[in-house]
Amino acid sequence: MRKLAILTLVALLAACKPAADPAGEDRSVPTAPPMPEAKADGPNAASTAVSLDGEGLRFVDKTSGKTSLLAFGVPRAQAETALANVAGQADDRSTNEECGAGPLDFTRFDAMTLNFQDGKFVGWFLGNEPGASAYSTVSGIAIGTTRAQAKQSVAIVDIEDSTLGEEFSIGGGANGVGGMFAEPGDAAKIDALFAGVNCFFR
């Protein structure tokens, strides 16, 4: 009887022993995939630059310097085609029914998002993402520009008590370009730029 009890205890202890790790099991911490490179492979990418403008997007011929404005108010298809000719195929389309300005539709090209309302181009938003370096204002303001650098070429108007953070506008006015610095101070870099109608909740 004593021998049977000992054998039973041994069996129970063996059952409680944790199983050995499978041979060769990879227990390394997973890492995030690398950010994809921006495309910028539209048919006109080599000859045309896109400048940020408070009234839309301005397309600049790299050889002659001539510009043409893609103005807010043009049909969605026209705006999408114009940017695709430089930036390449759009990444995605989406809709937000709850924007402060009313329902908005969006078409994203890497870091640049075009905003539409009732089928019309009404705004743009440039984030700090791959592809952002392809865009700047005519005065050279871009993602990554510091506050000190921006002040050397344009008037930076801080938006007091903004719920968006370190918000500012360039020159002020209804048709200006707005943006956000990543933090306070002259060394802070621009983290976003925008114009027209955007999906902000203030």
Rank of each mutant, 00 (worst) to 15 (best):
N85T: 01
C16A: 15
A11P: 05
E37Y: 02
I143G: 05
S47T: 14
A132K: 06
L12P: 00
S133V: 10
T67F: 04
P33K: 03
T31R: 07
N115V: 10
L13G: 07
S47V: 12
V74Y: 01
A14V: 12
E55K: 15
D21T: 05
E55N: 13
A77M: 07
A49D: 15
V29A: 13
T48A: 03
C99W: 07
A142H: 14
V86H: 10
A32W: 03
S133Y: 04
L57R: 00
M35V: 09
G131Y: 08
L104R: 06
Q89N: 11
D91Q: 11
G127H: 05
F109N: 04
S94D: 11
A79L: 00
A148S: 14
L12G: 00
M35S: 14
A101C: 06
P103Q: 11
T81F: 15
S68H: 06
A20M: 14
F116A: 06
T48H: 10
D21C: 01
Y135I: 09
K62A: 02
G73Y: 12
M112F: 12
S133H: 09
C99P: 03
L69R: 07
G42Y: 05
E37H: 08
G144N: 11
T145F: 05
V74W: 00
V138H: 05
D105R: 10
P30V: 02
K120Y: 00
E129Y: 13
S28V: 08
R93H: 12
E98H: 07
